[in-house]
């Protein structure tokens, strides 16, 4: 058992599952959006804002937003532990990795808060 405190859940299985499930959510959101924009190509602001004021759409969007955050976190965390290692950077690797992870965390949190603000503002 290899321990780690910075990954999403401490369990490899859980992280793996999260990445798969969020990928499905993101793919369906993307396809839905693509389909919607394709069939309503002459969309007006009113239509657009009506769509986003529906409760189901808000849930769907929020789900996609959270999925993006979790998906990106697992992915970026994996990248940081693959490439920002002691082998590549020597002793300072821990600090570099931590700063990178912290930046990723703050960015994802910002996107999430910002995304909610946009969705609720429409």
């Amino acid at each position: 058992m290899v321990t780690n405190v910075t990954n999403l859940s401490r369990s490899g299985l859980y992280d793996w599952m999260v990445q798969r499930v969020t990928a499905i959510v993101l793919a369906s959101y993307f396809l839905f959006m693509l389909g919607y924009l394709f069939f309503c190509s002459d969309i007006t602001y009113t239509q657009w804002s009506e769509l986003h004021s529906q409760t189901w759409m808000r849930i769907f969007s929020l789900l996609a937003l959270f999925s993006l955050g979790a998906h990106a976190w697992v992915g970026m965390w994996t990248i940081s532990t693959d490439y920002l290692t002691e082998m590549a950077f020597g002793k300072s690797a821990m600090v570099i990795r931590f700063i990178f992870q912290a930046l990723c965390g703050v960015t994802m949190f910002t996107y999430m808060v910002w995304g909610i603000q946009i969705l609720w503002g429409l």
């Binding site: 058992m1 990954n7 401490r10 490899g12």
Partner: peptide, 11 residues
């Protein structure tokens, strides 16, 4: 199995 369930060993 529980020895392998971390983010590194298998995943």
């Amino acid at each position: 199995l529980s020895d392998l369930d971390d983010p590194f060993s298998v995943f």
